[in-house]
Amino acid sequence: MKGSRLQVLMQSTRRSIQKNIQSALVVLGFFLLWEFAVWIFHIPQFILPAPSTALNHLFIPRADANYNWLYHISSTVLAVGLSFLVTSLAGILIASALAWSNRLKEIVLPAFVFINSLPIIAIAPIILLWMGYGVVTNIVIAFLVGFFPVVINTLTGLEAVEEDLLDLVRYLHASKLQIFIKIRIPNALPYIFSGLKICSTLSIMGAIVGEFIASDRGLGYIIINAQYSMNTPPIFSSLILISLAGALLYTLVALLERIIMPWKSLEAQP
C-alpha cells in the first residue's frame, strides 16, 4: 500500500515535470534575452542590471552590513515562514469552529467576508504604530493579509458537502464529530490547499510591505535602502531571493498537497 502510494506520487511528479520543462525553457529564454539586451544596448547598471550582475552581487564578499545577505534572508524567511504557519493553523481552526457552530458563523462570517474584500494591507502603518519596529510587526501584517482567504476557502470546503451523503450518515446515526472528521474535512482538503497557496503569496507580500514601511532588516528593507541610493543591482538580487522564497513555499504546499491527496494529482493530469 505504502509502496504503491509512493509510486503514484513519483509518477505524477514526473509527468508534471515533463509538462513544465517547456515552460521553464521559455522563461530561461526570456532571461537570456534580457542579459543580451543589457550588453548590446549598453543599458546603465542603475537603470537595469543584467541578471548575471544581480546574481553576482549575491556572492561578492563584503564587510558592509547592508549586504550581509544571510542576515537579511533569515529575517525575511523567518517572518514569512512563521506568519504562514500561524495563518494556516489559525485560519483552518477558526474556519472549523465557524463550520461547527451555526450561531458563531452567523455573527462572524459576514464581517470576515466584508473584511476580505478590503485592501487589508492599508492597515500596515497602524500595526506599526501599535507594535513598533521589528519582525513581529511584519509577521502580524503578513498574518492579517493572509488570514481571511484561508478562513473563507476552508469554510467553503467544509460546507460544500453533498446533502445526500450527510442525510445518509445521519440516518446511520453518525455523530457530528464523525461527520466532521470523516466527511467534511476530507471534502475540504482541496479548498484548504487552494487557500494555503493564496496565503503563501500573500504572506510574502505582507512581510515585504512590512519591511518596506518600517524595518531595519530583511530583503524588503534592502530594496528600499538600495532605492534611496540608486543602487539597482541589490534590488534585483533581493527580487531574485524573494521570488525563490515564494517559489519554495508554494512548492512545499504543492508537495504537501500531493502527499495528502495523491488521488487529486491523478485526476488533474489524465
Binding site: 515552460s23 515585504i208 530583503l219 532605492q227
Partner: peptide
C-alpha cells in the same frame, strides 16, 4: 511565471 512572483516587491524599482 510573473503571476507567481510577489510583484509588490518591484514597487521601489518603479519609483527609481
Amino acid at each position: 511565471f510573473f503571476n507567481s512572483l510577489p510583484k509588490i516587491a518591484l514597487a521601489p524599482l518603479f519609483l527609481l
